Simulated scan of single mutants.
Amino acid sequence: MKLFNAALLLPAVIRETLAYTALSDSTLRSLPGPGDNFDINNGALLSPILIPRVPGTEGSLAVQKHLTEFFSQKLPKWKVTLQNSTSVTPTSNGKEVPFANIIATRDPPWAHGDGDVSRLALVAHYDSKLTPNGFIGATDSAAPCAMLLHAARTLDEALTKKWESMDAQGDVDDDGLEGHRGIQILLLDGEEAFRTWTHDDSLYGARSLAEEWEASSYSAWSAYHSPLSTIELFVLLDLLGEENPKIPSYFKTTHWAYQKMAEAEKRLREQKMFKSSPNHPSKLKEGEAPKGEPMFLHEGGKKDTDRWAGGFVEDDHLPFMARGVEILHLITSPFPRTWHTMDDDGEHLHMDTVEDWAMLTVAFAAEWMDLEGFFDAGKAQPVKRNIDEGKTEL
């Protein structure tokens, strides 16, 4: 028999607030960008996803292989599983279409079992729309998937160092919060409608996974009763990669988490780490006065009396939200100009913005996982001036 961990029953907002530690300026400056890995033609993370990947097609299988092999070959400490389902769609002529959700999990090495660990879930869908024929879906959501791969790779070594340090110092016990926190990357299939968006023709993978996780019970002695209840926060990235995005705060109950991410964005901008910023050294001319900073997450000061549009935008979070999971929805409003058109391809991505989203996702997840002090801050990226071109660059 294992002692019941009463601390894990604290309300989610209290647990997260207690454990959330901001990264230092030096750590922020040390966070690596994706660089050539986001090259749209041959980048190791992004380019393999920039193909049509409709569920049940060869393109979908190729992207599944790319995503799963990334974890199995590059990040072997992550546990990778597939959650499979099938469904008849309006265009499948009565045939079952296969859907495969990819679940990559990194838990503390001493975790007694899945029911004893809460997790931050970082989520994007990897399928693409059936029409128009040949649709890529770069913002929708190849780029967000690549952002999550970069985040997992960047966080991996710091997680190892943190947990090794906790173990060495004897900080691992059944009453500690930090010893029972992990992280998941959920890459969902079948988000797009095959014909017209309805409750039945959309969110195939998300609906299947939420239903299965709700029905799967852990032992009576576990701190959490189901895989669904282990999700501390469901952070969904969608339609990201266009220039000058605006992300509202959709839900009152997770506005505090939105504010934490907005603060991380503000500090990354102050450290000149945001390439899309008009004040980045590569854009601001010497002697030029600083310009206004256009925040991605622009509603940090939102009040309870303001309009909250949570759930108005239908997306992969809905089946989870309906079952009580807390949601942080990172989706632009308005949608990108290329939304559901053939222009939503690699060439129309704003790559500085894509890299900035990757950096911000890493910073937020690192603060959530309390990883300050476990990155190599000695690798802070210096700012230098390119005299020949008359500009500064990292």
Rank of each mutant, 00 (worst) to 15 (best):
L155Y: 05
G182Y: 07
I185N: 01
T196H: 10
A12E: 11
G113M: 06
R195W: 08
G170Q: 02
M321L: 13
A143H: 01
S276G: 09
G170D: 02
T341H: 09
M295F: 14
W357C: 06
G310S: 08
T353C: 11
T68R: 12
F135Q: 05
D315W: 01
E243D: 14
T198Y: 03
E293A: 13
I247F: 04
T338R: 01
Q64R: 15
R385Y: 15
F135E: 04
P109D: 10
E270Q: 15
L75V: 10
R153P: 02
A158V: 09
P290W: 11
R29Y: 03
D352G: 03
A264W: 00
P90N: 08
A380Q: 14
L8Q: 13
F335Q: 01
G301D: 15
R269L: 10
N41I: 08
I49T: 09
E211H: 14
L318M: 15
K129F: 02
T91G: 05
E265F: 05
T160F: 09
S26C: 07
M1E: 13
A289S: 14
L75Q: 07
P108A: 06
V13Q: 13
T105W: 06
A12I: 14
L268R: 05
P98T: 06
D107S: 14
A6D: 12
D175S: 15
A264L: 05
M1L: 11
G35W: 06
W357T: 01
I136C: 00
E367A: 10
Q169V: 07
N386L: 15
A100Q: 14
T253A: 11
A223F: 05
L371Q: 04
E242F: 07
P109S: 11
D388S: 14
L31N: 03
P336A: 03
F135C: 05
S229H: 15
Y224K: 13
Q64T: 11
V172Q: 04
P382Q: 09
A22D: 12
E314T: 15
G59D: 03
L122S: 00
K285F: 09
W339S: 01
A366N: 04
L371M: 06
S282Y: 09
A138P: 00
Y20S: 07
I49R: 00
W339K: 00
L155D: 04
E69Q: 15
A206T: 05
R385C: 07
L122H: 00
M369R: 06
